[in-house]
Structure formats: C-alpha cells, structure tokens
Design a protein around this nucleic acid. Structure first.
Length: 217
DNA sequence: CTTTGATCATAC
DNA sequence: GTATGATCAAAG
C-alpha cells in the first residue's frame, strides 16, 4: 500500500475502512486471521497499519513520519467506549528520560494521533473498524498530560521510580512493559547506583481515551 | 466490572 | 537487548 500523500488522504482512507470487518482487511492484504489474540496481541494494530500504508518503522518517532501522525487502534465496546488502556512509549529509568515535557516522547507521540476504534470482543476477524478520529490534544488535555508526565518524570529522575505504580497519574500512568516480569534492565536508583528492575512504559488511562473518543469527530 | 501488573509476537 | 504492536489475567 502506497503511503498516503497528506493527512486528508490518510483520514479519507481510514474512513473508507469504517464498517468493514477485520477479516475483510486481512483477506485483501493476504494475511491470515488468528482465532484469538492471545498469541497475536499486535495483530490488529499491524493490520490497520498496513491497510493504511504506514511507513514508520522501529526507528521512527511515529507511524506516518512525513505527516507527523501516530496511528493507534483501540478496542471499544458496543457503546464506543475503550476496553483497554493505550500504550504510548517506553519510560526510561536510566537517566535518558527527556528533561522537559516538550521534548518528551510522550508529548511528541501524542501531538497528532489517528485513533481507529475497533468494535467487538469476539473473534478478531469478526471485529469491525469504527469511525476514525484525527486528534490533537486540546490545551486542557495537554495540560493534564503534562502535569502527570512532570510528576512521573520527577520520581524517575530522582531515582525513586521504585515508588511508582499504576495508581500514579490522572490520565497518564506508568506500568510494566516487557515479555515477562523476569525481564530486567539496568537503571539508576536514588543514590545514582546502577541496579536492575523491570522495564516500564507510559500508558493512557481508559477514562482519558474515552474522553478523547467522545469529543470531536 | 475496573484497574493494575504481567505477558506474547515480531523486527532489527 | 530495544522498540514496535497491544491484550491478557490476576486483584480489588
């Protein structure tokens, strides 16, 4: 699939997918449809990426670098409400975290997001693409994200990440992000000593994405 | 039912 | 091992 030329084309393509079951998208791309997602958790996201012509790889900041747009599929229930929190990016505990919100990966990733809700809870192939929303945080939303990020970042910078749990943050939270809890990375503690702990990542709370999907569009 | 903490596959 | 794509599953 050719990458979309501009944001209008991207949105137009996403709108064309609305109402279509994922099995149809997969067939069109010649991809197999898993029976469930237990061993294919990233299947829906990667399917929609390909269906829309995303080009950004692991080294890019977002899925459509030339458009400055990050793509997020999000599972929703019959009422269009998110069923899960949303992964944003890793939360480095090794001193490499950005010093300011504006330079943070959270801020940059969320600067422009194309949300593609996926409706349904049954077999992946039977789930249906919902109406997409091209979103930029409102000033108020960004202020909340920033406040949370700064509070979380301060704990991390002080080496007090061990105090961090998913209960911190009103809209943005830090949770484990790894293949398993046995996975360890080197990080700095409060005495600036290198120690090992589990990798963490930033996630958007469900209540926040619910608000995002409910407004606009 | 909702939230927190844990986990799975793949590319490089 | 790091980063991508997330959902699973145990707790509350």
């Amino acid at each position: 699939m050719r990458p979309p030329t501009d944001r209008d084309e991207l949105v137009s393509r996403a709108r064309d997918l609305a109402g279509r079951p994922l099995s149809e998208l997969a067939t069109g791309l010649g991809l197999p449809v898993p029976v469930d997602l237990r061993r294919d958790k990233g299947w829906i996201g990667q399917l929609v990426e390909r269906a829309l012509g995303a080009t950004g790889g692991p080294r890019e900041l977002c899925d459509f670098p030339h458009l400055g747009v990050e793509l997020k599929t999000i599972p929703v229930d019959g009422g269009g409400r998110p069923r899960e929190s949303t992964w944003v990016c890793v939360a480095p505990l090794d001193g490499s975290l950005a010093r300011s919100w504006d330079r943070s990966r959270v801020c940059r990733k969320l600067a422009r997001v194309l949300w593609v809700p996926i409706r349904g809870e049954g077999p992946p192939g039977e789930r249906v693409v919902d109406r997409p929303r091209l979103w930029r945080p409102t000033a108020a939303q960004e202020a909340r994200l920033r406040a949370d990020w700064e509070a979380l970042a301060e704990l991390i910078e002080l080496g007090e990440w061990w105090q961090l749990t998913a209960r911190h943050g009103q809209v943005l939270q830090v949770r484990p992000k790894a293949a398993s809890s046995r996975e360890l990375v080197w990080v700095l503690d409060e005495e600036a000593s290198w120690v090992r702990t589990n990798p963490r990542g930033f996630y958007l709370r469900r209540s926040f994405t619910a608000e995002v999907l409910a407004t606009r569009g």
